[in-house]
Computed example of a mutant assay.
Amino acid sequence: MLSAKSAETVRATLPAVGAAIGQITETFYAKMFAAHPELLRDLFNRGNQNAGLQKQALAGSIATFATYLVDRPDTRPDVMLSRIAHKHASLGVTREQYPIVHKYLFEAIVEILGEAVTPDVAEAWDEVYWLMANALITLEERLYAETQVLAGDVWRQWTVTGRVAETADCTTFRLTPADGAPAPAFKPGQYVSVQVELPDGARQIRQYSLTGAPAAAERTITVKRVHGPSAGGPDGEVSNHLHSQVEVGDTLRVSAPYGDLVLRDTEAPLLLASAGIGCTPMLSMLEHLSESEHTAPVTVLHADRSPAEHALRDDHRALALKLTDATVRFWYEADAEPGDSEGLMDLADTPVAPGTQAYLCGPLPFMRAVREQLLAKGVPAADIHYEVFGPDLWLAAA
Rank of each mutant, 00 (worst) to 15 (best):
R11V: 09
G18Y: 02
I21H: 12
T25S: 09
E26Q: 14
M32G: 06
N50D: 08
A51W: 05
G60L: 04
A63G: 10
D71I: 02
D74V: 10
D78W: 04
D78G: 07
V79H: 03
V79R: 12
I84E: 12
I100T: 15
V101L: 13
L105N: 15
L105M: 15
L105I: 13
A108L: 10
A108F: 05
I112L: 08
L113C: 07
L113S: 12
E115T: 13
T118N: 06
V121T: 01
A124H: 07
D126L: 01
M132Y: 03
A133E: 12
T138W: 07
E141P: 12
R142Q: 13
A145S: 14
A145F: 05
V149G: 09
D153H: 12
T159C: 08
R163F: 10
T176M: 13
T176F: 04
A181T: 13
A183C: 09
A183P: 15
P184Q: 10
V194T: 02
V196I: 10
Q204S: 08
Q207M: 07
L210G: 02
T222W: 04
A231M: 03
A231F: 06
V238S: 01
N240G: 15
H243L: 13
S244E: 09
E247I: 00
G249N: 13
T251L: 09
D260L: 05
G278C: 07
G278Y: 05
C279G: 03
T280D: 01
M282Y: 03
L286N: 01
P297A: 07
S306C: 09
A308R: 08
E309I: 02
A318H: 09
A326T: 08
E342Y: 04
M345P: 12
D349V: 10
L360I: 07
A369P: 02
P380D: 05
A381F: 04
V388A: 05
P391Q: 09
D392E: 03
L393A: 10
